[in-house]
Design a protein around this nucleic acid. Structure first.
Length: 449
RNA sequence: GCGGAGUUGGUGAAGUGGUUAACACACUGGUUUGUGGCACCAGCAUACGUGGGUUCGAUUCCCACACUCCGCCCCA
């Protein structure tokens, strides 16, 4: 048997419906914030990610899917979304658009060659958004608040936002030097990885899970102490706007982010996911004021956020957020002989074109099995086409809830269905008990906050 | 890249170095000469991850690999 590649996942059935729902909610929220959907290639020149994401990051040095195409070009499957979007921004000269800043969002698969585990795949789906062309602290706050709001609208309650600032380039350089100075005398106390990081990327030492509890870590200089006045003031502004927007956040100096392009504001969103301690960060982002220039565009500030779709689904599951999925059909058409089958073919088509969800039998089942199938599909009505009735231009239609059967004229089917298909008494999400869900006013099972 | 645990049919699973590998659910048909959901009866063909090895004989023991789950690193 040919099986799916390691670290990939088939999404189908009920799970696919949930994905579609969550994607739809994301689309709706993005629309309100006036972000436009963008679709960029799955593969790009390898160079883009080396310049964009950073030569020293693990993502680029050991996790990319690289290949040479038939023309000898070095290509890489995108490991993250920002570099491609920024490339597109530059290539399509969006810096010249009348509408500024440019606000873009995406929701698509990324590829990282890693060992799969809970909430981690080699093909992972991320949604994210970028606000390019503004350095205003308000844009930082909006990007953070938008992330929080998406999760809130989806019904997640256990969301925590950790915010930090890396400062501008000057602050970052000063801080870097201070860190090296601090850790150098203690280099032997650090883990192997951190020894490497000391010269290459000292900020990442702060993130280290192995060395976390060591004394050197606790006494390490804090980003906040190396910020110049401008950067400090900027961060204060961001926090102020966040408070005005009612975003609950925590300032966490250990948030430094793994990609090279960040400066100033960086943030992470954590969710409660039982048993997946290491994977509880479901999204993260930050400001990248030098990235556009690095990739070859004009000096342009930007800020963005990206979130793991798979981890979001895990969080939704853990918090038992009910996701509305359509679980019933309006009508199931049954037939026995070939003439009735032909009429069924005609009628299913006709009714579907009139907006009803209609199913029929494709397996030449017995009536008994057909009824069973109608039940399984949770059909609201069932019609058994009967040659005798059809001769009279009539049909028997059965309401599967009340078990009542009506004999109606063929011409009246559409009218009848219109009249008798009522809004579900219970929640459209199909749940029978109170729960956290987001199905709107029609939902009577919705638990009050 | 490193480490741990797994892999038996459509599904959940039991089990054994040796003639037909339990059981349950699901599915299909029948009892009901064309009206289901219950009950009973019957049926469900080619199921022991892949490749080697040990053996008269391997699903069972050994080795390798693949994949799944979990952890580390890293990240979403």
């Amino acid at each position: 048997m040919i099986t799916k590649p390691k670290g990939t996942k088939d999404i189908y059935g009920k799970e696919a419906k949930k994905w579609q729902y969550v994607s739809k909610v994301i689309d709706e929220v993005m629309e309100k914030y006036n972000y436009n959907y963008i679709r960029v290639p799955v593969f790009e020149s390898s160079e883009l990610f080396h310049r964009g994401v950073g030569e020293t990051t693990d993502i680029v040095t050991k996790e990319t899917y690289d290949f040479t195409d038939r023309g000898g070009r070095n290509m890489t499957l995108r490991p993250e979304g920002t570099a491609g979007v920024v490339r597109s921004y530059i290539e399509n000269k969006m810096y010249g658009d009348v509408n500024q800043p440019v606000k873009l969002y995406y929701n698509c698969p990324m590829y990282r060659y890693e060992r799969p585990q809970a909430g981690r795949y080699r093909e992972l789906t991320q949604f994210g958004y970028e606000l390019i062309g503004s350095d205003d602290p308000l844009s930082d706050a909006e990007v953070i608040s938008l992330a929080v709001n998406i999760y809130k609208i989806l019904g997640l309650k256990g969301i925590k936002v950790n915010v930090n600032t890396l400062g501008d380039q000057e602050s970052r350089d000063n801080y870097r030097k201070a860190l090296i100075k601090h850790f150098k005398p203690h280099v032997n106390e650090l883990c192997e990885d951190c020894k490497e990081r000391l010269e290459k990327n000292p900020l990442r030492i702060l993130d280290c899970k192995v060395d976390q509890d060591k004394e050197v870590m606790k006494t390490a200089p804090k980003t906040i102490d190396y910020l110049n006045d401008e950067s400090k003031e900027r961060f204060e502004k961001v926090k102020e706007y966040l408070e005005i927007m009612g975003v609950e956040y925590v300032v966490d100096p250990s948030v430094v982010r793994g990609l090279d392009y960040y400066n100033h504001t960086v943030f992470e969103v954590e969710a409660k996911i039982e048993g997946f301690g290491a994977q509880n960060v479901i999204g993260g982002g930050g400001r990248y004021n030098t990235l556009v220039e690095q990739i070859g565009g004009p000096k342009t500030p930007g800020i963005g956020f990206a979130a793991g779709f798979d981890r979001l689904m895990l969080a939704l599951e853990y918090e038992k957020v009910n996701i509305p999925v359509q679980t019933s059909v309006d009508l199931f058409l049954l037939y026995v002989n070939e003439d009735e089958k032909k009429y069924a073919a005609y009628l299913t088509n006709e009714l579907r074109m009139n907006g009803f969800i209609v199913e029929t039998d494709y397996l030449n089942r017995s009536l008994k099995a057909g009824f069973k199938q109608a039940d399984r599909l949770n059909s609201k009505f069932t019609i058994v086409l009967n040659s005798e009735d059809l001769k009279q231009n009539e049909v028997k239609i059965k309401n599967n809830k009340t078990k009542e059967e009506d004999v109606i004229s063929l011409d009246a089917i559409i009218y009848y269905l219109d009249e008798n298909i009522t809004e579900e008494d219970d929640c459209s999400c199909g749940a029978s008990e109170e729960h956290n869900c987001n199905c709107g006013d029609k939902c009577k099972c919705h638990k009050e906050d």
